[in-house]
């Protein structure tokens, strides 16, 4: 039984490899976490990408349209993750960017546990590097999900419209109640105003070390802030971050892209992510700033 099971798996792998190589397959990310992993695997397994300039950011920068940026720039922007993950990936992945652009806004968010280990542990790193079908972009479920989704959609809709929702509406009563959004807003505001001075000191000491290490290796590091809502811009945490940058990484000794006028941009409900229109406008400005930095304007 054991031998036959292993043989079955080996044959299935061989057939699947043939499908990926010669069939109608394309890389697929099943969820945001996997998008981050695929983006990273593309970077660490490609010699040419590791020489590109990199942008290290979070979901705030991820709103920028990568296709509109200057050539030779790779976005290591991770929604849900941290800028620190980007630093780790470039360092452990042996990247050699000439320019590195680091988002300032969420610098206090710590690195994601286990992410680097997943990319760089010996079993994963070498197997996925040398056998590309093992990379996350080619998982069988991702390959078939699109097809299943296409066929499932009308059936789900039918079930939802004619059975599930009508039954639920019986329990709704006259007024449809929604949850108390003011409580969410208050909690969000409380968290965004919280400042832990010990953590700030720890993070910025680490950041200074990290930046110095890259600069010694010939990478020029630029910091930039993405536009956010005025309320977020002026809250306690944002002020503490800006003050810490000025204290630990002062302009003159370290490099900054020029600040943008936040009044020119609008954000979505969460006050930190740019709306589609503003993201397109910011992409243009950001692209110009990157070109300027490459010409040592700042």
């Amino acid at each position: 039984m054991i031998f036959r099971s292993v043989l079955f798996a080996v044959v299935a792998l061989a057939l699947y490899a043939a499908y990926i190589n010669y069939g109608n397959s394309a890389p697929v990310a099943q969820h945001q976490w996997q998008k981050n992993i695929i983006r990273t695997q593309d970077y660490v397994y490609s010699d040419s990408l590791r020489k590109c300039d990199v942008i290290l950011g979070t979901s705030l920068t991820d709103k920028v349209n990568a296709d509109s940026l200057p050539a030779g720039v790779y976005m290591l922007t991770y929604p849900g993750f941290s800028v620190w993950d980007g630093f780790e990936i470039v360092r452990q992945g042996n990247g050699h960017p000439k320019y590195m652009f680091v988002e300032q806004n969420a610098i206090l968010k710590p690195a994601t546990p286990n992410f680097e280990d997943y990319i760089f542990n010996e079993l994963n790193y070498y197997s996925k590097k040398h056998v590309p079908i093992l990379q996350d972009a080619y998982q069988p479920v991702g390959q078939v999900a699109g097809y299943i989704n296409l066929h499932a959609e009308p059936r789900i809709q039918l079930f939802s419209d004619y059975l599930f929702n009508p039954v639920l509406r019986v329990f709704q009563g006259d007024t449809i109640k929604t949850i108390d959004e003011t409580a969410h807003y208050a909690e969000m505001k409380r968290l965004r105003n919280a400042v832990d001075p010990v953590m700030v000191k720890e993070m910025f000491t680490k950041l200074k070390k990290e930046v110095d290490w890259f600069q010694k290796r010939g990478t020029k590091v630029y910091f930039y802030g993405t536009p956010v809502h005025q309320e977020v811009y002026s809250n306690d945490q944002s002020q503490a971050i800006r003050a810490a940058f000025a204290q630990y990484l002062p302009a003159g000794q370290y490099h900054y892209l020029p600040d943008v006028d936040i009044a020119q941009y609008e954000t979505i409900r969460d006050q930190i992510h740019l709306s589609g229109k503003s993201a397109r406008e910011y992409t243009k400005v950001f692209a110009e700033q990157i070109n300027g930095a490459r010409q040592n304007k700042y």
Binding site: S5, V6, F8, A9, A12, L13, Y16, I133, P140
Partner: peptide, 13 residues
């Protein structure tokens, strides 16, 4: 093996 083979395949990939 028709049960454990596919499971092994999915664990790997």
């Amino acid at each position: 093996y028709l049960v454990y083979g596919p499971m092994l395949f999915f664990i790997i990939i």
